[in-house]
């Protein structure tokens, strides 16, 4: 059995879907947890525009409902990240990743700026297109190996087709990794500091996790 992040310390069984905590996944899980708590307790920034050539500046007003909505989306994104970090089932992993993708869209879509909304729309299209290779990859793994559990696949007795692995990576990239990340950078123009951090943090976490998944398969 090839182990990347150390031997699993303990398992949490939900029927066929077994969540496992190895030193690697537990680190990522804690990171996501810390940031979710951080988002929950922190107060949002107030963006201030300075008018050039004059001594004036004006603060952008963010309505309370918008604030609540974006905080809710950030926390959902954090929870989705936590799930994606520790799940031990391939299809479950793809579902969690697409949940992260839609939450990221939600964090910025509430902002009332046409530029930001256009970026959110383009990113949402990529995220939706990314589910196609992801689900296809999970289905191909199920059909060619007869299982979806990462723990079974890590035994190394059955070879996962290379095409399925590549499709999985491509799909996860579509949900918010470089180079398709650029649209997200554009979304950062949206005001509200602690919430947009969740966007970039989720990409980082998912990048690390998908590397482990690919190496384990």
């Amino acid at each position: 059995m090839n182990e990347i992040g150390g031997a699993p310390l303990f398992f949490l069984e939900f029927g066929d879907i077994v969540i496992y905590f190895s030193p690697f996944t537990i680190t990522l899980f804690l990171l996501a947890l810390v940031f979710s708590v951080f988002v929950l307790v922190s107060r949002p920034e107030r963006q201030i525009d300075i008018a050039f050539g004059a001594d004036a500046f004006y603060a952008k007003v963010i309505s309370l409902s918008e604030l609540k909505f974006r905080r809710f989306m950030s926390i959902a994104c954090g929870l989705a990240c936590m799930g994606a970090m520790v799940t031990g089932d391939l299809f479950d992993f793809t579902l969690f990743v697409s949940l992260v993708g839609i939450c990221n869209v939600g964090i910025v879509a509430a902002v009332k700026s046409r530029h930001v909304q256009n970026a959110a729309y383009q990113y949402g299209l990529v995220a939706l297109a990314g589910t196609v290779p992801m689900f296809a990859a999970a289905a191909m793994v199920a059909a060619t190996t007869g299982t979806l559990s990462m723990l079974e696949l890590a035994e190394g007795t059955i070879q996962v087709p290379l095409a399925a692995r590549a499709l999985l990576v491509l799909g996860v990239m579509g949900e918010g990794m470089a180079p398709f990340y650029a649209a997200k950078a554009e979304m950062f123009r949206a005001p509200g500091a602690p919430y947009v951090i969740m966007c970039s943090l989720s990409s980082l976490l998912i990048f690390l996790r998908v590397a482990e998944v690919i190496l384990v398969l």
């Binding site: 839609i102 869209v105 939600g106 299209l125 995220a127 939706l128 589910t131 296809a136 289905a139």
Partner: peptide
Amino acid sequence: VIALIGTDLAEALILPGLVVGIAELLAL
């Protein structure tokens, strides 16, 4: 691609896949 698995598992995977698709479509 999911339907081609052809087992009961395929159906259990198609239903979430479908619903995810329509939900994101409405939001977008």
